[in-house]
Design a binder for these strands. Structure first.
Lengths: 186, 186
DNA sequence: GTCTATAAAACGATAGAC
DNA sequence: GTCTATCGTTTTATAGAC
């Protein structure tokens, strides 16, 4: 058996920043092959298609956020305001570490009207996000108010990413995070 | 002169919903040709390239918003709260009349990291938007606070469009508009 | 004939798939 | 690497108004 140059997991991890920066449709198999150090034909040994690769990339992002970021919202060893600050801080790091913003938001805008293939995983991601923030807000507000505030936070954060992507002004992200935390205190 | 099937302006107007629904890279000249009732080669009598057509489409959107929607923010025959409600109402109509959300936001996410060609017009659009809302908020707040509130409104609205595009829940847009108006009253 | 909006055909390049 | 399809673009031809 020939040596395996890269694992399936490495292909997913190396494809992620390419999709985030170039978008789904504008990313070619050649782009992905270069990023992974593979011949483009070799991809089909790991994945059925570009679409199924993208699904797994989105799944990896969703798992990461669920386990490493949203989980903080339920950490009862921290005060509510500390949880919220930590979640937002990790989120900002995740989207500013490499360029391209939020893959889920990008992909929603690019594909939501064209294919249903990615919708379940994207909806689950945003649902998990809103539920996590709502859990924090619900320590100070009614369940309904907490849910509204959580939805508002998700919108504000995703919207901020659009303006940041265009203008390069990362400060807008920190401003948004500050407002999201302030609303917990009132 | 042979019969002209479409004017230059009609090509722009008929291309707009195609770009909004399919995105820039995923829209082919064949898609645009079908929408305009032309052969794809015939486009090049009106426009140098797909890119220059897109620039003119973005310019048409920008002009429309500037003249028909943002202008309301400066209409002194209306009370501030009335202006804000009217601006948001027109904006919601503009993005829900046909599917696809906000062409400017979509295009920013899709292209901002890949080409600078569309950035000036997109930045001018968002600048005009924030300035318009800031003019309304400044009747109740300091210039700096008004600008922050206007930026926040732009982010919330664009973020809401992402969630609406994915989930189909148009109510999220109305919820966001309600919050944006409420912040003027406080 | 000359001009011009369109159609039709064909170009090289690159797409996703195998 | 090799396939076929399609991409954005260019060229050629045609039809009708001067």
């Amino acid at each position: 058996m020939p040596v395996q140059k890269v694992t399936r997991e490495e292909v997913i991890q190396k494809s992620l920043p390419v999709f985030r920066q170039r978008g789904y449709y504008n990313t070619s198999m050649t782009d992905l092959a270069e990023a992974c150090g593979l011949q483009k034909g070799s991809f089909y040994h790991y994945f059925d298609s570009k679409e199924s690769l993208m699904k797994e990339v989105l799944g990896a992002v969703s798992s990461y956020f669920e386990n490493k970021i949203f989980a903080i919202a339920y950490d009862e060893s921290l005060l509510p305001v500390e949880r919220l600050q930590k979640v937002l801080d990790k989120q900002i790091r995740a989207v500013t570490n490499t360029k391209g913003g939020c893959l889920m938001g990008n992909t929603a805008i690019e594909t939501a009207l064209l294919t249903d293939e990615f919708k379940p995983i994207m909806e689950a991601f945003f649902d998990g996000y809103v539920k996590a923030l709502a859990a924090i807000y619900s320590t100070q507000f009614s369940a309904q108010a907490a849910n509204q505030l959580a939805q508002q936070a998700a919108m504000e954060f995703e919207g901020a990413l659009i303006l940041v992507k265009m203008s390069g002004k990362e400060q807008l992200l920190h401003d948004a995070a500050h407002r999201i935390v302030e609303r917990l205190k009132s």
